[in-house]
Computed example of a mutant assay.
Amino acid sequence: MNTYLDQLHPYPFEKLNLLFQEITPANLPAISLSIGEPKHPAPQFVINSLAENFQHLSSYPASKGLLELRQAIASWLTQRFHLHHISAEQHVLPVSGTREAIFSFIQAMVSKDDYVVMPNPFYQIYEGATLLAGATPYFINCTEENNYLGDFDTVPQHVWEKTAVLFICTPGNPTGAVMSCEQLKKLIQLSDQYNFIIASDECYSELWFEHPPVGLLEVCAEMGRHDYKNCVVFHSLSKRSNLPGMRSGFIAGDANLLAPYLKYRTYHGAAMPVQHQIASTLAWADEQHVADNRALYQKKFQLFQHELGHLLPLVKPDAGFYYWLKVDNDEKFAQHLMQHANIKVLPGRYLSRDTTHGNPGENHVRMALVADIEQCEQVIQRLKNIL
């Protein structure tokens, strides 16, 4: 058995179940705001495409994916991030969900005793993949003092010297903070200095309010780095298109990284089913459903700010669909909402780790505004009743 398995932490939702073990929920219909699972309807044209292509169930999908899908992704990246050149053949690889891709990318790129630097709080796959590769996670605390973006100047030189991968998440999960072009340029310069990979998780990039967030490849293009050296991005249809169950995403960037990663995936990792690839091609080519989806989230945030802004310290994020809410005690707050309103939220300490400078998730809760408008209105009324 892999001895590194013992180092894995329980997943946040396992901890949440234990927290509620002794709690009797209010006698109301349960509403979950704890998990980032979109509840908006999936695009009908995607559903139709899946139904029309079930004959491909009899076909093995190629590891590299359909050329048409890679071309659609390359076209979307070019338009969305103002790229000068990106090759569907060399710079793009479809994957069966970014969760799986992030995990397998670390296994392919990281050696024992390397560091993998990551934000704290974070998506737990970053840490789990690092530990199972025999590497060491190094956490950068994302706090209110640094606008929840982390202070990269605090990382010691000896850590950078042994860093294989730097994970960034922009817009951030759970904070919704967006890195600026200047911050990304600084990280690219650090990558050049210490020769590490920058892996940018950009799965929330299309859920913005005023302005679309800048992306890592976009900054590379602005710097004239059209080979995207040591830079990769992860994108998904889960949040953008309300398709979490289709497990459809991609990794794009440096061809010198994608080639060995594809070799790894040939041996490990299921390729996306052909019918899912065909439907994904249509999804990446359409922006109207994304704009409609974005408008629904904007409406919900406006509703919460207007109705609850005087009762809770609600700070609208830069992007994404989470509130990162400051409270006196995150576990007690979550228990209180469950007991008195049957609303489930996630304590922030379950998304972060203790460090010498404290636990940056402690005394925050993550509220995912994924429920429909009607349920959100119920949440608001219940919170008004107990606050």
Rank of each mutant, 00 (worst) to 15 (best):
P313T: 05
A255Y: 07
Q79F: 06
Y264P: 04
P212Q: 08
L308W: 01
V92R: 01
P43N: 11
Q302G: 12
G361R: 09
L312Q: 04
E144I: 03
G358M: 04
L216E: 09
S191H: 11
L282E: 06
A101S: 15
K384L: 11
V232D: 00
H340P: 06
I47Y: 09
Y322I: 02
V95H: 06
S236C: 10
K344Y: 02
K326E: 15
L296M: 13
V327P: 03
H310F: 00
G172A: 10
E377A: 07
F103A: 05
A221F: 00
F321D: 01
V159W: 04
N329F: 05
S87P: 01
G134I: 12
Q124R: 12
V92T: 01
G348F: 02
H211C: 10
G309Q: 14
H211W: 06
F196V: 11
V370A: 03
A270P: 06
T170P: 02
L18G: 07
L387C: 15
L243Q: 10
K263P: 05
K229T: 14
T136I: 13
I106H: 05
T24K: 13
A285R: 11
L57Q: 12
S32L: 11
L132E: 01
T143H: 08
L303I: 07
L50T: 00
E210A: 12
L314P: 06
Q90A: 14
S87F: 05
L237M: 14
Q339G: 01
A101Y: 09
V327A: 00
L311W: 10
H340N: 15
A199K: 04
R349Y: 00
Y323I: 02
